[in-house]
Design a protein around this nucleic acid. Structure first.
Lengths: 202, 202
DNA sequence: GCACTTATTGGACATTTGCGCAATAGCGTC
DNA sequence: GACGCTATTGCGCAAATGTCCAATAAGTGC
C-alpha cells in the first residue's frame, strides 16, 4: 500500500478507536485491530504513541474547525455568520467530538504534543468568533467594547455548557446548551432577544 | 493505627498524588509511597482503585464547594455574596484543583462512580449561584429573567475559562480569567461595569 | 531471473498495573 | 506470659502496554 495512504488509514483507524474508547484508553493494539494489520506496522509509520494520538486529534478537531469556518464565511452579514457559527458548533456529531476535546484538555498537561495542537485550535476558534464580532461592531449590528474578551467568553461558555452535557447528560440537555449559549451571546453582544434563535424553540 | 484515621490518611495521600500526577496517572503504589506504607494496605481498606479515586475526588471538590458556600453566606447582600463567590472560586489553589476537575469530567464517561459525584457537585455549584441571583433579583440589585439559565452560564463560563488557563496557560492567564469572568457576570446580571472588580486591576 | 528496497508480520521484552495472599508484627485481653 | 485479632507487610501473579527487531512478503528496476 502507498505510504501516504497507509499513514492516512492509520490515522483514520486511530480516530475511530479514540472516539470509541477515549484518548487515554487508545492502545497500539486496538488501532492495529481496527486497521486489520499488525501492531508493528503502526510503529513503522509513527515514531511514538503520543505522535499518533496528537495527529489523529488534530485531524478530527481541525476538520471541525474548518467546516465551521467555511460555513461562517458564507454568512451574508456578521449576524448571519454568528447564526451559522452556532448552528455548526452546536451540531457537533453526537458529542463524540466533544468527549475528545475533554480528553484532550485533560491530557494536555501530560502530552506536550497534544497540548500544542489543542491550544492552537482553541485560539483559532476564538479568533473566528472575534472576527465575527469585530465585523458586527463595525457594521453596527453588535455592541461590544472588548471583542477579544467577548470571543473568549462565548467560546468558554460554549465549551463549559457542552462539557456539562457530555459529562452529565442528566443535568444539562443538548437543547438547553443550544438555547442557553445563544441567549448568552445575545446578552454579551447587545442583541435583541431572539436574534440567534432562528427556530420556534424557546 | 485506628481504622478510621487510616482510611482518612489513605484518602489524603491519594489526593496528594492525584493533584500531583492527575487522576489517570494515580497508581496504588504511588499512593502507598506517599503514605509511607505498603501497597497491600490500600487494598485492605479500599475495595478497588475506582472507589479510592472517587472518594478522594469527592473529598477535595466537596471541601472547595463547602468553603465557597460558607464564604458566600457571610456576604451582607447578594452583590457582596457574588463578590465573595468570585473571590473564592478564582483563588482555587494554583489550579491543581481545576486540573482535577478536568480529569474528572473526562473520566466521567468511563467511571460511573466518579460521574455521579462530579454531577452532584456541579449541580450544587449551579444552585449556589442561582440562589445568589434570585436574592439579587428580589433585592433589586440584579436584573435576570432566567436565574437558572444564568447560573449555568456563569458556572460554565468560569469552568470554560479556567479550563483554558489550566490546559493552555499561554493562551489565557489567571488574571484574564478573573477579569473576563467577572465582567461576564456583570453583563449577564445587568450590573454596572466594575461592580465585581473590587481591586485596581482592570 | 536477480539483487535491492520496503512494507508488513508476529512475537519478544521490559515495564507497569491492579489485585490477592501467606506471613508477620503489634497490641489488647485474660 | 499466652492467646487472638487485625493492621500491615512484601512479594507474586496475570494482564496489558509501548517499543523494538529479526524474519518474511512483495514489489521494482536491471
Amino acid at each position: 500500500m502507498n505510504p501516504d495512504d497507509r499513514r492516512e488509514a492509520i490515522i483514520t483507524a486511530t480516530l475511530a478507536v479514540m472516539q470509541r474508547q477515549g484518548i487515554a484508553a487508545t492502545t497500539v493494539r486496538d488501532v492495529a485491530a481496527e486497521l486489520g494489520a499488525s501492531s508493528g506496522l503502526i510503529h513503522h509509520y509513527m515514531t511514538s504513541m503520543d505522535e499518533l494520538i496528537a495527529e489523529a486529534f488534530e485531524r478530527s478537531a481541525g476538520a471541525d474547525l474548518l467546516a465551521t469556518s467555511n460555513l461562517v464565511e458564507q454568512g451574508q452579514d456578521p449576524l448571519d455568520q454568528l447564526r451559522y457559527f452556532f448552528d455548526s458548533y452546536t451540531r457537533s456529531d453526537g458529542n463524540s467530538g466533544m468527549q475528545l476535546w475533554l480528553d484532550a484538555w485533560a491530557e494536555a498537561a501530560r502530552r506536550p504534543e497534544l497540548r500544542r495542537i489543542s491550544q492552537r485550535l482553541n485560539e483559532a476558534w476564538q479568533q473566528l468568533i472575534c472576527g465575527i464580532i469585530e465585523g458586527g461592531v463595525q457594521a453596527g449590528s453588535m455592541t461590544c467594547p472588548d471583542p477579544v474578551a467577548a470571543a473568549w467568553r462565548i467560546l468558554s461558555l460554549l465549551d463549559g455548557l457542552h462539557l456539562q452535557e457530555v459529562a452529565h447528560s442528566d443535568s444539562v440537555t443538548s437543547q438547553q446548551v443550544t438555547n442557553w449559549s445563544r441567549r448568552g451571546a445575545e446578552i454579551e453582544l447587545g442583541l435583541p432577544l431572539g436574534t440567534l434563535t432562528n427556530t420556534e424553540t424557546s
